[in-house]
Amino acid sequence: MTQPILVIKDMSIVFSSPDEADIEAVRQVDLTLTPGKTLALVGESGCGKSVTARAVLRLLDRNANIPRGSILFQPEGEAATDIARLKQDSLPLRAIRGNQISMIFQEPMSSLSPVHTIGDQIDEMMILHEGLRPKQARERTVALLDQVGIPGARQRADAYPFELSGGLRQRAMIAMALACTPQLLIADEPTTALDVTTQAQILDLLRQLQSDFGMAMLFITHDLGVVAEIADEVAVMYLGDVVEQGSVYDVFARPSHPYTQALMSSIPKMARKAERVRLSPIKGTVPAPKDRPVGCAFTSRCPYAFEPCATIRPERTEVGGGHHARCHLLTRQPVEAVA
């Protein structure tokens, strides 16, 4: 069995404020990533997906910290490094960022420097991490831009981000992330702002590049259709908790947490005019992080909630081989019949 390259164990992320109580944005998350496989992290906006991903590279805000848990990164043949315990901007951490672990950010227009050309920004990665000379780096950059499907790669390398379309900027961001051939790629909603055709092209490109490089991928999205197309495993997040995790087939075929079931029910379905039915939205609203229940985070919106849900956090329960969920319904003892 292939050794995992990244194991996140019992990780919590807390944001502090001088005026209010600390807020636990991510609560005791467990994730495992394996070379050549894609783990999709899904959930509503604000559930903690991006914060979890940024924690892997320690790109959190200054008022955020990781008070508990570990982020063990172990490339093949190397000793494990706990990224959670590395000092911010230390040399060991900087050696990992962009080199062994890269990230495709959600919005390339705000992530790319507007005052530097695309080529200069990609060149810098290879000059810094691999010690290439500027001319060598530029040749590699042109080859990368061509590999990710940017037409006229040599000319586009001299373009500024505002001179490119959204799809080309996203491809340039992918080229930058792959500049040093990372062993783990984090893709934070890389297709959200793209049209359907460009989205399909980007997904095909990521699959092909993953096959070429054999890298592990953490894919963050709220689009379950994209998950079904690109992922091997899926972890469902709600209000900072991973409530269900397993293979894509298991989670889609047998959703075991009420939140996952509600997500599946809310997907629009193709139907004939005579068979039209109303959408089934998830009732209620997501509570503010400071108002999160002590127990199950989904308690206030769950139609099956009962007494212990609000006060006791559910244990991670195995539903099937490698398929887990956090729900009291899975461990609830049936009421004995009265004689």
Rank of each mutant, 00 (worst) to 15 (best):
A310G: 15
T299Q: 11
K290Q: 14
G322D: 06
R316M: 09
A325R: 01
H324K: 10
A288K: 10
C309E: 06
A310H: 10
G322R: 10
R292F: 02
P289C: 04
E307S: 11
A297M: 02
T317E: 04
A288V: 07
R326G: 02
S280R: 12
E318D: 09
D291K: 01
F306L: 05
A325C: 07
P314H: 06
G322E: 06
V286K: 08
R301F: 11
H323C: 05
T317S: 11
E315Q: 14
A305S: 13
E307L: 02
C309G: 04
D291I: 03
T311S: 14
E318C: 07
G295M: 00
V294I: 14
R301T: 03
R292A: 14
K290R: 14
T285A: 13
S300F: 00
G284V: 10
R292P: 04
R316W: 12
E318A: 15
C302A: 08
V319Q: 02
K283M: 15
A297Y: 00
P287A: 11
G284S: 10
I312C: 03
A288W: 13
H324E: 13
R292I: 09
G320D: 14
G322H: 10
K283R: 15
E315R: 12
A297H: 03
L279S: 15
C296N: 07
E307H: 02
H324P: 01
T285I: 10
G284H: 05
T317D: 08
I282L: 13
A288N: 14
F298N: 01
K290S: 12
F298Q: 00
C327P: 07
P303E: 05
T285F: 11
C296D: 12
E318S: 13
A305D: 09
P293R: 03
R301N: 09
